[in-house]
């Protein structure tokens, strides 16, 4: 700040505090609701201060869940979400780093074609090709399976672009020195390029983990078997029944549990998260 203007400084903090309140308030309400008993919602207004049922609600949802909604205990859904998010993040990084390596460090016929085929995935989010993609997965017999939940989401142009961008900044001489030192392409990849990409991989992993965790429409379509429910899609099923038969405290417990893992990842790995986010979009 250049000049000292106390009023402006106060205003600045007021704006920020208001912003934080707007961002936090909906989640605060959900948290409060998740600490009450079912009876506390019958008075016509949600409670605004925490209640005594915190541990009871969370324990109940984690171990039993709303069986009336046809949903399994939340720990199963959380585990499914974790598996799916990890597989998607790892898979995307794996296939993207290899294809970016091929595109940057080799010249071969149809290189441009390969690049464009990958690039085109940017233009085809799952929402716009939902029917035919579902049909392909159904024809392959991948409904209600971890493979069906993850593989169709694994192709990623953004991750490939990020790695390509990074590889282009690696000095040419490094690869030349490695070749003079007797390293072949895979050895160079393993010994030099992969260790150099560590930070990028970690940053990308944070972003892709969140991407995998928040998937909703796709799991909703390809799973009918409750053993494969993810927490994010499970919540919608819980909420749908809650409207008819209010069990707000339990729904909000599930909401808190669905939010917690990715939000913690963002907060604990903020530096990597910001790097991953700002750089994948460039």
């Amino acid at each position: 700040m250049i000049e000292n203007r106390p009023i402006l400084a106060v205003l600045t903090h007021l704006v920020l505090i208001l912003g934080v309140v707007i961002v936090v308030f909906p989640v605060y309400l959900a948290f409060v609701a998740s600490t009450h008993g079912g009876g506390d919602f019958l008075r016509g207004l949600v409670p605004l201060l925490p209640g005594p049922n915190l541990f009871a609600n969370y324990e109940f949802m984690l171990t039993e869940g709303l069986t009336t909604a046809g949903a399994p205990p939340l720990w199963i859904m959380l585990l499914n979400s974790l598996i799916i998010a990890l597989v998607i993040a790892t898979g995307k990084i794996f296939i993207s780093i290899l294809s970016a390596y091929a595109i940057v460090f080799f010249k071969f016929p149809f290189r441009m074609l390969a690049f464009w085929v990958i690039f085109i995935t940017l233009m085809l989010p799952v929402e716009v090709r939902i029917m035919p993609t579902f049909k392909v997965v159904a024809d392959l017999g991948l409904l209600n399976s971890y493979a069906g939940l993850t593989i169709p989401l694994i192709a990623s142009a953004t991750a490939t672009f990020l790695f390509r961008q990074f590889f282009l900044t690696v000095p040419d001489e490094l690869m030349e020195a490695a070749r003079v030192d007797g390293a072949g392409p895979m050895k160079f990849f393993r010994d030099i390029l992969l260790p150099l990409s560590r930070t990028n991989i970690a940053a990308l992993f944070v972003i892709l983990f969140i991407y995998g965790w928040v998937q909703y429409l796709w799991p909703l379509l390809v799973t009918t078997d409750s053993r494969y429910y993810t927490i994010v899609m499970g919540i919608k099923r819980l909420a749908a029944t809650a409207d008819a038969e209010p069990q707000w405290h339990l729904v909000m417990t599930a909401v808190m549990l669905a939010m917690l893992p990715p939000v913690l990842v963002v907060i604990l790995m903020q530096r990597l998260f910001v790097k991953g986010l700002v750089e994948t979009e460039k």
Binding site: V23, V214, V232, V265, V266
Partner: peptide, 11 residues
């Protein structure tokens, strides 16, 4: 301010 990025749209 940044954590809502990690909240699923349906949530």
């Amino acid at each position: 301010l940044v954590w809502p990025y990690a909240v699923a749209p349906v949530v």
